[in-house]
Design a binder for these strands. Structure first.
Length: 629
DNA sequence: CTTAGGG
DNA sequence: CCCTAAG
């Protein structure tokens, strides 16, 4: 193997003497890092997809008019996860029940199931190419509470790394649908259309009914003000429990102090000045920036706001390194989600009076047009995760609820349900809801499952998926069908209007699919790369390379052992070495993650000791001008 | 762009 | 894995 050397590396010898055994003392300094509470896709899905029951029991306590505006935008809250036991694995690929994102050591068991239902008859089920299949996350929650499960590590599959490799593409006609728990809300039958919107909308982003929003006095970060009108609408009887959305299993080795890892002794609320600034800047700042991007570009005022994001040239450079071989070929069109199959049942209807009970249920929630490019050896788990990320991205952007009566969109929010004839029994079967991306917030036009993830073969639960944004113009697109092309062209042509809503014929839904096109040049700017734990072969390669080259030449280490691995930068390798040294220096009981063979760890310690000694010596030598050793 | 080191 | 100062 040839190591290309830089010119300025001429002086150092590369021969590797026998390495002395030296007791290790290296102990990386570490710190606890709390993973951002990210909204779990499952929360979101359950939220959006929650069956809706409109019940008119206590109409007397209900304000006559509830406007949509009063409950539209809610602070997103996570809903306490409940264990569910009726997951419905429908994976037709025979993979069975696959949990996307294991809960790890988190306190509450959380899991997410996304089932893949195959709709197309054209694919080969025996190979593992997830091609042309219908992605259908299917979730059932049995009880009427607003319960949901979640994958504790979901939500941060962002910031993908482009990679070369063949990819398959999910059939554009894929539909993503789910059924979820029920949310009961009470609603006067004579309420406004807006009130109906509100009820649907109120279970949207936070998974909490509006009436309960303000009750969360214990919520951790009171950074957002609650809605003022929270008490104006005691309509919801959904029992919603909330809890901080933890990410307990996100104990990245490079950011977790050994003392704090085992016990989740995080300090969620502690923030020193600096820390608070940083946290705020990096997390909310980023989020805010992203939002700003969407909003500002929506208004066409400062489209390049995002592009000009404060970023040092170094960062750009470093990121550019990842972009070099970008071959992202997944495309996802976040079309509007249509809550289809809404069915109504009417109880005790009393047409003459204002007292009828109307039960209204959204049975499923469909997101048509999911384009996912999938490499040959992607796993089912990776696909699930991808879908999760996609859906999260969609829903996080905010959703707008529309009400369709007999296919016609009811625009007037102030009309009463009666006026809108929604109260009439004979057309209750013809009500649909639409959920549309709010303000074109969707920010992940590219998504991709990296290939080559399963070095060890088996872990379908690894968080493999990643979302990757790319410039719409960059490379040749894989050949999609017309529909895709249309969406794609649309994206390119509406560059100034990320809010543009483009009708796209959807094979799966008779209704018009509305595609809010969000096209910002760099939608995922600032997205964190997905965490990809080093596999054993990778570790071996790293150790090999470091043994030969030493610890100060990470670029060469990369070239020696990871030259064809785009997603590992030399910084990554350096970091991994750091963690390896740390891992090797702690007791095996304290180690987490994929166990590294002790033999390898021993080599790590030896190499580390040797090369650090070499560095010291060379430092001395150069300091003293001349010295031989 | 690379390294080194803190977060 | 991110960020950044410093070569």
């Amino acid at each position: 193997m040839v190591v290309r050397k830089r010119l300025d590396y001429g002086s150092r010898g590369h021969q590797v003497p026998a390495m002395p055994r030296v007791p290790s003392s290296a102990r990386g300094k570490r710190s606890t890092r709390r993973k951002k509470d990210e909204m779990c896709a499952f929360d979101l899905l359950a939220t959006v997809a929650g069956s809706l029951l409109v019940d008119h029991e206590n109409s007397s306590t209900v304000p006559e008019k509830v406007t949509a505006a009063s409950t539209y935008s809610r602070k997103r809250k996570s809903v306490k996860a409940e264990q569910r036991d009726d997951v419905l694995p429908l994976n037709t690929m025979g993979v069975g029940n696959c949990i996307v994102g294991s809960g790890g050591a988190s306190a509450s068991p959380r899991q997410t199931n996304i089932c893949l239902a195959e709709n197309s008859s054209t694919q080969n089920e025996t190979d593992s190419v997830l091609e042309s299949l219908t992605v259908k996350p299917d979730m059932l929650v049995k009880d009427p509470l607003f319960s949901c499960t979640k994958a504790s590590n979901c939500g941060h599959g962002l910031g993908g790394i482009p990679e070369s490799g063949a990819s398959g593409i999910c059939h554009p006609g894929s539909a993503l649908s789910l059924e979820a728990n029920q949310v009961q809300v009470q609603q006067p039958i004579d309420g406004d259309t807006a009130a109906l919107y509100s009820l649907v909308s109120s279970v949207d982003l936070d998974g909490r009914p509006p009436a309960l929003v303000s009750s969360d006095s214990s919520s951790g970060m009171p950074l957002f003000s609650h809605d003022k009108d929270h008490n104006t609408s005691p309509l919801c009887h959904a029992e919603v429990q909330h809890a901080a959305d933890r990410d307990d299993d996100e104990n990245s080795s490079w950011c977790t102090h050994p003392c704090t890892t085992g016990n989740k002794s995080y300090m969620p609320h502690y923030t020193g000045d600096n820390r608070i600034r940083k946290l705020y800047a990096s997390k909310f700042g980023k989020a805010a920036r992203n939002k700003m991007c969407g909003e500002m570009s929506n208004k066409g005022s400062k489209q390049n706001f995002c592009g000009n994001k404060i970023s040092t040239t170094r960062q750009k450079v470093q990121r550019a390194m990842f972009k070099r071989k970008k071959i992202v070929r997944r495309h996802f069109t976040p079309s509007s989600a249509k809550a289809s199959g809404a069915s109504f049942s009417v109880e005790g209807q009393n047409p003459g009076s204002e007292d009828y009970n109307v039960k209204l249920r959204i049975k499923s929630f469909t997101i048509p047009e999911l384009f996912i490019e999938i490499p040959e050896n992607a796993t089912v788990g990776s696909l699930k995760r991808t879908v999760m990320d996609v859906v999260t991205s969609i829903i996080e952007g905010g959703l707008r609820v529309g009400v369709l009566l007999e296919g016609k969109n009811i625009q007037d929010d102030n009309r009463t349900l009666r006026q809108a004839r929604i109260s009439q029994g004979d057309n209750l079967d013809n009500i649909d809801f639409t959920l549309e991306c709010e303000a074109g917030q969707y920010s992940s036009p590219g998504i991709r499952i990296p290939e080559g993830m399963d070095f060890l073969g088996a872990d379908a639960m690894k968080p493999l998926a990643m979302i990757k944004c790319e410039e719409p113009f960059s490379e040749t697109k894989a050949s999609y069908n017309h529909q895709h092309s249309l969406a794609e062209m649309t994206m390119q042509e509406t560059s100034t209007s990320s809010q543009a809503i483009v009708p796209v014929a959807s094979p799966k839904s008779e209704a018009l699919a509305i595609v809010p096109v969000c096209k910002s040049k760099r939608p995922a700017m600032g997205q964190r790369r997905i965490r990809r734990p080093f596999s054993l072969p990778e570790v071996e390669a790293l150790v090999d390379a470091v043994e030969q080259l030493g610890t100060g030449r990470w670029r060469d280490v990369k070239m020696l052992g990871f030259d064809n691995t785009d997603h590992r930068t030399y910084v990554d390798l350096k970091d991994k070495w750091k963690t390896l040294v740390h891992t090797a220096s702690i007791s095996p009981q304290q180690r987490r993650g994929e166990p590294v063979p002790q033999g390898l760890l021993d080599r790590v310690l030896v190499a580390q000791a040797y090369w650090s000694q070499q560095q010291q010596l060379s430092g001395k030598a150069s300091g003293q001008g001349s010295s031989s050793c």
